[in-house]
């Protein structure tokens, strides 16, 4: 365990090509995942037991509900605003069908899950974005739910924890999805002006209109190791500047070095970190 913690602590060599660890024991026929970092096949059961983190420190994507379970006290999560589901305000070609497909595939109604929960006994409002739902893109329903959550948190004087993953604004909702950036920001501002804490945990990937709104507006901004965090996609940047990008461009270490996140926190330490932050900001 000590070795594991050492491997996963901030500043590991993850982004420089990984490190070797003991060979993985496996049972015949067990489903495996290929780690894109160390190139080894890891049994899924082992990953599950390890918060979807490879022995080399690579953080696999995680479903929003898995994250909520990992970060909050067992059974304490109360989901809010489940009635809010995407409409199709522009009647955008193919959008309805796309929504139906991703709803079935992800098992979620929307790209964000909101609610209240306890983190080591501290009450907080929490939202977790779902990468398996159109890469956590922000349409009107996502904007509405996040805005409502900040308003709910303001009313009840609660801190907000945001677990963020997003490709940005959802283009199928056109200029209305763009407006969600302004709308959520205004709600964040009111919550902030009331002296309440907002912590954002940026996971892979956090980009576009979400980076350019509530992801970068938190009091404390944490990043998961290896997460891509940026405004424009790396390919777009490359096309714009016609230059090869440096290794690790827009990765968590890069963003930390340029001063846009507070800490890189590996998954194994996220819950303890959040709990400590909440304790340090306890009111009353």
């Amino acid at each position: 365990m000590a070795l594991l913690l050492h491997l996963m602590k901030t500043g590991n060599k993850l982004e420089e090509g990984g490190r070797t660890a003991a060979p993985v024991q496996r049972d015949e026929g067990e489903p495996e995942k290929l780690c894109p970092n160390c190139r080894r096949r890891i049994p899924v059961s082992r990953l599950w037991g390890n918060g979807m983190v490879c022995d080399c420190g690579y953080h696999f994507h995680m479903k929003a509900r898995q994250r909520i379970e990992m970060l909050t006290d067992s059974g304490s999560f109360r989901e809010l605003f489940t009635g809010i589901k995407t409409a199709d305000p522009l009647l955008f070609p193919g959008y309805q069908e796309k929504l139906e497909t991703v709803r079935t595939a992800s098992g979620e109604e929307e790209a964000v899950i909101c609610g209240t929960a306890l983190v080591d006994g501290h009450t907080a409002c929490l939202f977790a974005m779902e990468s398996y739902f159109m890469m956590g893109s922000m349409g009107c329903a996502v904007g509405e739910k996040i805005t409502l959550l900040f308003e709910h948190a303001l009313q009840n004087r609660l801190p907000v924890i945001g677990i963020i993953v997003s490709g940005g604004a959802r283009m199928q909702e056109g200029v209305l999805s763009l407006m969600q950036m302004a709308r959520t920001s205004a709600a964040v501002k009111r919550h902030s002006d009331a002296g309440l804490l907002y912590t954002a945990l940026l996971t892979d990937p956090t980009t576009g209109g979400v980076t350019a709104s509530f992801a970068m507006e938190a009091d404390v901004i944490l990043a998961e190791p290896g997460a891509t965090i940026g405004f424009a996609g790396a390919r777009v940047v490359e096309q714009t500047t016609r230059k090869a990008l440096p290794k690790g461009f827009q990765k968590a270490d890069f963003v930390l070095r340029h001063g846009f996140v507070d800490c890189i926190v590996p998954r194994a330490r996220q819950r303890a970190f959040l709990s400590r932050l909440l304790a340090l900001h306890r009111q009353g």
């Binding site: 950036m181 302004a182 920001s185 205004a186 964040v188 501002k189 902030s192 980076t211 350019a212 709104s213 509530f214 992801a215 970068m216 507006e217 940026g230 405004f231 424009a232 846009f260």
Partner: peptide, 10 residues
Amino acid sequence: QGQAVAENLL
């Protein structure tokens, strides 16, 4: 860039 836009919105 993202932070700059976000701060203006806020």
